[in-house]
Design a protein around this nucleic acid. Sequence first.
DNA 1: CGGCGCATTGATGACATTCAAAAACCGTGG
DNA 2: CCACGGTTTTTGAATGTCATCAATGCGCCG
Lengths: 249, 249
Amino acid sequence: MALKDAPVLSHVSCGDCPIRHRAVCARCESDELVALERIKYYRSYEAGQTVVWSGDRMDFVASVVTGIATLTQTLEDGRRQMVGLLLPSDFVGRPGRSNAAYDITATTDLVMCCFRKKPFEDLMAHTPHIAQRLLEMTLDELDAAREWMLLLGRKTAREKIASLIAIIARRDASLKAEGRDGPLVFDLPLTREAMADYLGLTLETVSRQISALRKDGVIVLDGKRHVTVPDIDRLLLEAGDDSDGGFIG
Amino acid sequence: MALKDAPVLSHVSCGDCPIRHRAVCARCESDELVALERIKYYRSYEAGQTVVWSGDRMDFVASVVTGIATLTQTLEDGRRQMVGLLLPSDFVGRPGRSNAAYDITATTDLVMCCFRKKPFEDLMAHTPHIAQRLLEMTLDELDAAREWMLLLGRKTAREKIASLIAIIARRDASLKAEGRDGPLVFDLPLTREAMADYLGLTLETVSRQISALRKDGVIVLDGKRHVTVPDIDRLLLEAGDDSDGGFIG
DNA sequence: CGGCGCATTGATGACATTCAAAAACCGTGG
DNA sequence: CCACGGTTTTTGAATGTCATCAATGCGCCG
């Protein structure tokens, strides 16, 4: 288990950072990195902990180093919708805004590399490489949000589940950089309830559709969380996406 | 055929541009504006025309000057979801990408201020004010997309319609900068079908819910498109949003 | 073992979709 | 001015998908 006794990690050199090449600092030269290094600090959260509540003052921005966090919105009567799934290297918070717009929750044990907002903004003004990278990341997130909107607005429950499993499978494969084909094997990092919040469904429907995909042989389950995808193309077909599961040039 | 007599508008000075203070050029100094002015050109499209198809090569970026355009995604079987609603001053296209990710359609007559991508990217590299503004606009769009995700995933048909009308009403009021209260009056700039694509509904459901809101006195219709909102708070209540309809500090 | 959290399964019903038809609207041309 | 055809919108009835309510099962830890 994770961070029992280390709410703040010891200082890790940026050169050794696992997200060095993907995070907001990806494009920085070594002198820029030194400046970032000077103002950074780590925070960790246990699975289930809330990082900030929507509307609360938030005096820092951060990169996810390890673990997974979610952004969610809530209607007064309790209906919840996840609007962001933050994986390692993703950026948290918004320069130029002082209060959080969403609830941020750690769904696994989580470590973030934080910068107090003011110093970060000042640094950004002098460091185009940071602003450039942040723009690029934000545009990617916008694309992801739009893909997600298609899912929420137009896909069936079964397609939603298949899509989510495909997304997780793809991410996992890219991380492990596995051999091209052969069955994919991974763990679902989300509870049924979190999946429901992601997909705009109830947890019962999520459970039913997962069972259905299992029954039809699209996925194989070992326990609640451990998944094998024997045929990724079959899964993508079920997801209803454009043939290729495709990316843009 | 398309653009009867004005495929390219006469050159308008940036100083006189109606979106000068809100578009991607908003922060530019006069010398920066000159550089932009040198590479800009206008294009117009008639209502209903497609600007580009998803996947097509797109060698320019642009700002909407007047009119409304939409971004939509389509599943193979024809299900469509709008993922962006582009109003005057909104930015179209993505620096660093050569092909369109979405269908872009003019839903009204449309004028755009275009920049060929390469010169724009070069200019952006030397002009932090443009990149800064673009980042800010992209972050705003991301927030809007997330609000939209909540709508798509969790709101009922009636709430979706009320939300859309509220969004249009708010935008319209901010444009006309009207007296605080008193009934709001405006036109819906979208067909029932476009609303359905926006909201993840069928056009029949859109029609039914609009009728229901009319029957309940939440809105007053004059013809198909002309709307009066006698009580904006009532409408916001129907939209199911956070009490204030609110913004973040 | 017993209790707690998470997940599955079942029965029922509400809400939105689908299919179908009628009505209202718009521009055109007589 | 009105008639006409095409398009958009409204309305109706039947169907289906997913939500809701409720009970049961599973795994884990004290």
